[in-house]
Design a protein around this nucleic acid. Structure first.
Lengths: 248, 248
DNA sequence: GACTGTGAAACAGTTCACAGCT
DNA sequence: AGCTGTGAACTGTTTCACAGTC
């Protein structure tokens, strides 16, 4: 529809867009028609300047002195994210996680529909998972073509992930969400996003470990400059909010 | 044990540490005793300079002219990540995802043990999930204290996530892995990492959308500088690898 | 000769601060 | 008066390139 005369958007901005989208949906549900960058920021857990800069990459959707129109902004973000049309996805690996994702309805309302679930274990083929029936992984390429699958979701054990990714790629899939704890080796035009729960836990553990070390060494050291005293209670006005980290 | 005379480590480095750890484990399994930054980099899907810089934050664990000793490096990273001791975790919300995580054994071998699963639905209490029995969410604070839980994993529906987080925080938990699609509002000393599958899918969708737009506009434009022709096959020497993005 | 460790350069992302619109 | 949009300053991260060590 629109001409591709668009600026280059920072990755960090792109990663926040879905969050803004969610916040705006909530505002819409609350019948709010206007939102200032300040309000959106508070809700999204970022600062107002960031919201304004992020949104400005796409155009001037706000009104000075007023704010952003919730409905309008929602439409624009929706368009940018391609949430106006459907994204057929396939899940490879019907283990605990794959099945959980297949059953989970929360994506379909945002345009992501799981059109097939495959597994390599013949014993599992035919089993019902949510609305779908597990098919054999042999049929993966076929299914991708048949349903015009655009996004592949890999939830296999790590040893099987590369092969799944290769099959998906050869069938034309260019976007992969990889839950397997492996680094996939794919052509440069394939976009892979890794979600690894163990990695996340280890990052948390690292910080816990440091906290413990800091506390231990605070016994001798006089200067309390290193470790702040734990924020006793949320302040009245500006809420001191948790350190946040999302997939980039 | 060691004095807290440690440098400040960039977040980006911390996020890669678990990946190096995984690669080293694999090398160890393959009986390799030495690894160069180049080899580690290839395996981890990053470049060699990054590996060297990352590791150098922790000390000089390599030998010039030789590389890094796999076993030694593994011990050091393990220590940094606190994988030498156990991290008791609790899962709040025994839905599809919560149950899948509870059943999944893949964390325990890295020191993360799920010591309890709670849910707010009385009908689910008593149900077996993996090795554990679902308990009522009322008991959450109690369970945290009893098992000295350090990490809380929130897998509730979004509406219930804030309350779960508050309870965890009040019981002393300072690290939260949040799967609920909500921005949690917590004291600044609580570290939250968000994992949101819908967000990940939307990021992939954004890029797909742009690809489609670029292709559409490429009809008129002569310069093929914007979109590279799809890498036909993995090159012999240096592998051109997929764009990668992990939780930061 | 090979490979690490690291300053310095380049790049990316965030925050500031204010001009400009309504 | 209020709030957006954005250059400019700043902070964080990656990459380069090479001196230093084995």
């Amino acid at each position: 529809m629109s001409p591709a005369r668009r600026r280059v958007i920072p990755e960090a901005t792109i990663a926040r867009l879905p969050v803004y989208h969610r916040c705006l949906l909530q505002m819409q549900a609350e019948e709010r028609s206007k939102a200032s960058s300040e309000q959106l920021a508070e809700m999204a857990g970022v600062n107002a300047a960031k919201v304004r800069k992020d949104l400005s990459y796409f155009g001037s959707y706000g009104t000075r002195g007023v704010g952003y129109g919730v409905d309008h902004l929602l439409v624009e973000i929706r368009r940018e994210l391609g949430l106006t049309h459907d994204w057929p996805c396939v899940i490879v690996g019907a283990g605990n996680l794959g099945s959980a994702l297949a059953k989970f309805a929360g994506f379909s309302d945002r345009g992501f529909s799981v059109v097939a679930v495959v597994d390599i274990d013949p014993a599992r083929v035919g089993e019902q998972v949510g609305e779908l029936v597990i098919q054999h992984e042999e049929r993966l390429a076929e299914l991708v073509l048949e349903h015009a699958v655009v996004i592949g979701i890999i939830t296999t054990p790590p040893a099987a992930a590369q092969e799944a990714a290769d099959t998906l790629t050869q069938a034309g899939v260019r976007s992969i969400l990889n839950f397997a704890p492996t680094v996939l080796d794919l052509p440069a035009d394939v976009l892979v996003r890794d979600v690894d729960v163990a990695v996340e836990l280890q990052i948390l553990a690292f910080h816990e470990e440091r906290r413990a070390a800091a506390k231990a060494s605070a016994t001798a050291a006089a200067k309390p400059a290193t470790a702040k005293p734990a924020a006793t209670k949320p302040a009245t006005g500006k809420q001191v909010t948790a350190k946040r980290a999302t997939a980039s």
